[in-house]
Computed example of a mutant assay.
Amino acid sequence: MFADTSYLRWARTHFEGVRYNLGSSGEPTQRLDLTGIDVTVAAGPGHLIDAVARHNQVSPEECHLALGASHGLFLAFAALLTAGDDAIVETPTYEPLLRVPEGLGARVIALPRPAHRNYAIDPAELAALMTPRTRVVAVTNLHNPSGARTPDDVLRELAAIAAAQDAYLLVDEVYGSFDALTDDAGIYRSSARRLGANVIAVSSLTKTFGLGPTRIGWVLAPPELRETLEAQLTANVGILAFDLANIGVRAFEQLPQLRNHALARRGTKRERVDAWLRARGLAWSAPREGLFGFVRAPNIEGLGDRIDAGIARHDVVVVPGRFFGDPQGFRLAWTLDEADLDGALERLGRVLDGE
């Protein structure tokens, strides 16, 4: 049985309707031009797979469709794990990276990404955690919740360590294409799938492009997993809806415009968040890219309770660190409109002060 993924349930409850949302980690929902689409006529999944392959610069044979990145993670874990296997998962972490392997009967082993290293992964620590039962090593890039990017050379080293035990490196790269890594043609040339034969990459159009409602996601995997992944998708959803392919193909055609819109919205928000945190003496991950970071506040007593109470009291929300395994911190995002940022931070200050 799969345990409750408490973060996703909490987010569904608290992100909608709050006036000052400093918690949501992706671009706000964007409108697609769907003129002329007939949802009763399927474009065919092959057309969408071709679009995913072009976007990631991999072969169509490596591409598998999913209903968003979280569903892609489920499919990847289900294709790799059986009861009694080991899954090594980064910590702090995005909660589904824990709940899915646990639900499949695997033993989850924590791979530390400590704040004092600014959430960097030490490959030597991974090597020490590997066992003969390890089937998968799971990380996020950009790291959720810190926003830290793991360099390609480190990912290659992690993949080589996993390969020595016939295991796979699973990279959730749903935040990976932030900033300049998707080019003017809508091509993402830095997918982790290209870094090693045993690397699996999962992503979607949700976070970078603001297309969460479309549920256009994918798994990029080596050819030997093709039949297994297709079997998991069939068992899980049967046949994907016709309009998924129609809308997905149209979405990829519009990625350059969506990218440019997202870049224009960035403004100076990250720099203003950084200045506000420094003025309050709060340490954070200070990522150079992306739309969120992780703030540690070990000296604030009852931090999680203050954050929860502040949603109703001050109409502002950040994500409590308990959902990532670090209750003395919180994830802070700057996806709201630039005009609202100062007001949101002022209210967050009241929350942290216990008002």
Rank of each mutant, 00 (worst) to 15 (best):
L75T: 09
A197Q: 13
A110Y: 04
A159V: 03
R194F: 01
G103P: 05
T206S: 15
T208E: 09
A312V: 03
R107Y: 04
V52H: 10
A120S: 12
I311V: 14
G196C: 10
D172Q: 01
V139S: 00
L345S: 11
V18N: 08
L80R: 02
G310K: 08
L126A: 02
D122F: 05
G325A: 07
H64P: 06
I49S: 07
E61P: 04
H71P: 06
R189V: 03
Q57S: 09
M1F: 11
S25Y: 08
P114K: 06
R99D: 14
V139K: 00
N299G: 15
L97G: 01
E27V: 10
A66H: 11
S59Y: 06
D274G: 15
L98E: 08
H116P: 02
W334L: 14
I307K: 13
G267F: 10
S6T: 15
R280T: 13
A275G: 13
R266Y: 12
G293V: 08
T82R: 04
A245K: 08
A87S: 09
A344M: 14
V316P: 07
A159R: 00
R288H: 14
W276F: 15
Q57H: 09
G147F: 06
D308F: 05
D86T: 10
P287L: 07
L73H: 04
V139R: 00
L22V: 14
D305I: 11
A275T: 15
V174Q: 05
L303A: 11
L303E: 01
A344N: 12
L142K: 00
G147H: 03
H55N: 09
D353W: 14
S25M: 13
L263A: 05
G210D: 05
D33K: 13
E102M: 03
E289P: 00
I300W: 12
W334A: 12
